[in-house]
Amino acid sequence: MSVQFSKPKTLLSVDALPTASTVTQETTNRRSFLRSGGQLTLSAMAISMLSGLNAKVASASDKQTMMDIQILNTAIAAEHEAVAAYQVGAESGLLSSAILNVAVQFQGHHKEHIDALSKAVGALGGEAAGPLAIYQFSVEKLKTETDVLTFAASLERGAVSAYAGAIPLFEQRELSKAAASILADEAMHWAVLRQVLGLNPVPGAFFS
């Protein structure tokens, strides 16, 4: 079954991660601090990535630069798919409000990844990939919140592998660094989703 997907709407603002009643205000503040720090890190990463690439614009016809653009565009395509998948999950009506907030936050991260990667493609003299008109998700299999979270977790796990497989291919170290930063974010999404699903959030020491 395919799903017609249009440009995602902003669903909700993300005010806080879900917290149990026993969680202290101090913990909440720490979470807020960490979240702000994460956003700053991503912005700094994006700026650093772009500044490092400016000198390369003149050589956009280089074979390796074209390869870098191809790698970035494959990543952008996957990020667009992630945004669409979270939209499907958010609109499924299966997520509790607390989980929905987290899903929307994660979707926002994927949008930020698209922005940063697209700017990098532009800096290299390329054209960033756009979203597909239609994404084919097996929505008929999504019947419970657990189904949606398992689906999201599988996408995030796959994204970790995709970035791990792409990082060694970049010619420019700045791009590898940026992709590693995004990989870390995807891995955190995966771990959080596994935790919510009652699984070991970090089931191993190495991942490929």
Binding site: T74, Y135, Q136, S154, S161, A162, S208
Partner: peptide, 15 residues
């Protein structure tokens, strides 16, 4: 196969 699932599915086209 999880390594493939960043971009592929058995049954439908993705990235």
């Amino acid at each position: 196969y999880v390594m493939c699932m960043g971009c592929h599915s058995p049954s439908y086209n993705r990235t």
